[in-house]
Design a binder for these strands. Structure first.
Lengths: 81, 81
DNA sequence: CGTGTAAGGAATTCTGACACG
DNA sequence: CGTGTAAGGAATTCTGACACG
């Protein structure tokens, strides 16, 4: 399901992270939610998985800019993680 | 995906129906969203499908109480629609 | 019966900033 | 750097009611 259907509150529930963390990952160009006409962020289950992985990597000592590099490689490579 | 993750606004977008219609189907015991601590309804993709079917049946001339009967039969029968 | 709407309140989310280290 | 928080505003949703037919 890559449909962007849930708000940040649900993402917090599903991941256990804070709104601040999730918005920060977006600021660092690691997650790309779409917006409601009113400006509210909408996420997909795929986004939730990515967010989980991002947080895991950060806990493992990676920096967001490093994760960004990894993300770009994936997008230019041949598939998933 | 039977996780209740989206708000009524998203259900409206996905189904093309009004909030009024969706809440009414709930009032008639045809849909069962869960609630946020604050009282906000949360729906699953399965709910969205059910809502679409309910509306289709209503357009075909069925009454909500008839659909309720059909729903009960399904739940007591041996599976899906 | 099934759905539209105006009404006021409550819950949720948004942005920008200050803080720590 | 990554995250917490208080602040004020804006978007979204909620309920109960009146309306039509």
């Amino acid at each position: 399901m890559e449909e962007k259907v849930m708000y940040i509150g649900m993402v917090c529930e599903l991941t256990g992270l804070s709104e601040r963390q999730i918005r920060y990952y977006e600021e660092r160009k690691l997650v790309f939610p779409v917006r409601t006409k009113g400006g509210v962020r909408k996420y997909s289950f795929e986004d939730v998985d990515n967010i989980r992985e991002i947080n895991r990597n950060i806990k493992d000592g990676f920096r967001t800019f490093e994760l960004k590099g990894m993300l770009n490689k994936r997008l230019h490579g041949r598939g998933q993680a």
